[in-house]
Write a protein that binds this DNA or RNA. Structure first.
Lengths: 219, 219
DNA sequence: GCTCCTCCTAATGTCGACATTCGGACAAGT
DNA sequence: ACTTGTCCGAATGTCGACATTAGGAGGAGC
């Protein structure tokens, strides 16, 4: 069984605010006032403060001394930073996962890819595909058994999601065709022993997404 | 001129506590009670809370729900995690720095290495060498011009320092001889255009330090 | 002797009030 | 016209009091 996670109000608050940002309820540049959020969420300012600190750590918002916190804007620079950093850590994650993943974990990865395939065929929303994409990589990181690496991923994950959502909103959702095959290949490589190839593919898998997005973001 | 940094009490508090941990004032496993620290530092519990959250983010302490926060123990596992992750991001940092560093920044790196050489010759304390080592890498990351990468380094830096300090305390300070040459080589590679070699050397520079430490930590 | 239950204590989690800081508006001086 | 100084509103930074929780000591039941 999985451990029950005990969190405080600030954790819940962070989730709500994060969702609102990813929803598009809070557009980039929006000022997130502590008192306002505290009133809306029905918690104290302290909890909101902690939540905002978490989100800043995730790169979703930025705060300045005595000037409040605003939702981060997705510029080409941000996208490049997020994806280059992600590509780098994904390289380590996949290498470790290949060494340490149990057969059960690999099977679960297969399962996620299958669900992706079904989603693509049945013409599901892009957002659903995105969730599966994230889940896939979550599992890879978990299989790597590297606490700090997982934390690094958690710190990046929301930004990755925001970048991908931005891309979807821009209409260029053209990754439907590739997504299944790319992930399928990753699982196969994780299963095998071709370490070098895996590291390269894992890195390129991420960098490919980056170039697609930065191209879209550039005017 | 450099921007004046405006921070609150929690920033100062975090610095004090961090120093105390790196000093050895708070040994691994020590419980850090909020009220106690608040009284000692002369600030409110809120500020201490924020400070501890920062330190947790840096990996120096760990906290559990309603059970307080304790200083992280430096186990071989922790050392391995810290150094593998560091090696990975250092790879990206050095590649970027090679592309983006200005001549002035490269000259400053030379300067740091020179100071290292002087410190080694004059038989300075290991702790001083360590500070220069950290400063060197700080500058490399800054030269990479990648905000998120810098943040990832800041999150790791204290842990790196803690690991190195642990090593010094164990008596195996044998890196005096290598430290200058290794960094000298890194600067030369940053200056040149041999990207692949640079990435490899930068990674090995870190992984070498890791194997040395994990060997020491293992009983 | 073992388990389970109940209390108790010491710590963290949460809250709203007060202090500080920022940026802009407005007026005075050069 | 431009700069400089002052004030003001609104937000964050800081604080100590109160609520909640975890874990242990102690006793009752079996």
């Amino acid at each position: 069984m999985k451990k029950v996670e005990r969190r405080g109000l600030s954790g819940d608050a962070a989730d709500r605010i994060r969702d609102a940002i990813l929803d598009g309820t809070f557009l980039p540049g929006t000022a997130l006032r502590e008192v306002e959020l505290a009133a809306t969420l029905g918690v104290s300012r302290g909890a909101v403060r902690e939540a905002l600190a978490s989100l800043e750590h995730e790169g979703l918002v930025q705060s300045e001394w005595h000037r409040g916190t605003r939702v981060t804007d997705v510029t080409p620079e941000v996208a490049e930073e997020v994806y280059t950093l992600r590509a780098t850590i994904e390289r380590l994650a996949s290498t470790l996962a290949a060494q340490r993943a149990t057969p059960a974990e690999l099977a679960e990865l297969d399962d996620v890819v299958d669900r992706m395939a079904i989603a693509v065929e049945s013409g599901a929303e892009a957002v659903e595909l995105l969730a599966l994409d994230i889940e896939f990589h979550d599992r890879v990181y978990r299989a790597a058994r590297h606490r700090r690496l997982c934390e690094a991923w958690l710190a990046l994950r929301s930004s990755v999601r925001l970048c991908q959502l931005t891309r979807i909103r821009l209409g260029r959702a053209g990754y439907r065709g590739l997504v299944v095959d790319e992930h399928r290949e990753l699982v196969e490589l994780l299963r095998g022993t071709a370490e070098k190839r895996l590291a390269r593919v894992a890195e390129e898998h991420v960098l490919g997404a980056m170039t697609a997005l930065t191209k879209d973001l550039a005017p």
